[in-house]
Amino acid sequence: MVAGNPHSRAAAAHPRDSGHFRGPTSTLSQKVSVLPACTQRTFADCAAGTGLRAYREHASLGGLRFARASAGPKPNPHCHGPTGPRPNTVRRRIVDFQIVQAFFMLGFVAMAAGTLWFYLERNDLKPEHRSVATYAAVITFIAAIMYYVMKDVVKFPGGEITAADVDATLPLRYIDWLLTTPLLLVEFALIVALAGALKKGLLTKLIIADLVMIVFGYLGEIGTPGSVTNWLFFGISTLGWLYIVYVVFTLKLGADAPAHVSRAVGIMKWFVIAGWAIYPIGTATQEFIELGGGDAALAISIAAIIYVIADVLNKVGFGLIAVRAAKQS
Rank of each mutant, 00 (worst) to 15 (best):
I244A: 11
I244G: 05
I244W: 03
V245H: 06
V245M: 12
V245W: 14
V245F: 15
V245A: 14
Y246G: 05
Y246D: 13
Y246T: 14
Y246L: 11
Y246W: 15
V247C: 09
V247H: 01
V247M: 11
V247R: 12
V247G: 02
V247A: 13
V247K: 13
V247L: 13
V247W: 00
V248N: 06
V248S: 09
V248L: 09
V248W: 00
V248Q: 03
V248K: 03
V248A: 12
V248F: 05
F249L: 11
F249S: 12
F249A: 13
F249W: 15
F249P: 00
T250F: 11
T250Y: 09
L251G: 06
L251W: 05
L251H: 12
L251Y: 05
L251C: 07
L251V: 07
L251I: 09
K252V: 15
K252I: 10
K252H: 13
K252E: 15
L253E: 10
L253P: 07
L253K: 07
L253T: 10
L253I: 06
G254D: 10
G254F: 04
G254Y: 07
G254R: 07
G254Q: 06
A255G: 15
A255L: 07
A255V: 09
D256V: 06
D256H: 12
D256G: 09
A257V: 05
A257Q: 04
A257P: 06
A257G: 06
A257D: 04
P258R: 11
P258G: 07
A259E: 14
A259D: 12
A259G: 04
A259H: 09
A259K: 14
A259S: 12
A259W: 02
H260V: 06
H260R: 05
H260Y: 10
H260T: 10
V261H: 08
V261E: 03
V261L: 06
S262V: 01
S262E: 12
S262Q: 13
S262G: 15
S262H: 08
R263W: 11
R263Q: 12
A264D: 05
A264P: 04
A264F: 07
A264Y: 04
A264I: 10
A264Q: 02
V265D: 05
V265S: 08
V265F: 11
V265R: 09
V265N: 05
G266H: 13
G266R: 14
G266E: 12
G266A: 14
I267F: 13
I267T: 12
I267S: 06
I267G: 02
I267A: 13
M268H: 03
M268T: 02
M268Y: 03
M268F: 04
M268G: 03
K269M: 08
K269C: 08
K269H: 07
K269D: 11
K269L: 08
W270E: 01
W270G: 01
W270D: 01
W270S: 00
F271G: 03
F271D: 01
F271M: 08
F271N: 01
F271I: 01
F271W: 08
V272H: 04
V272C: 05
V272S: 04
V272A: 06
V272D: 02
V272R: 00
I273L: 12
I273A: 03
I273P: 02
I273N: 01
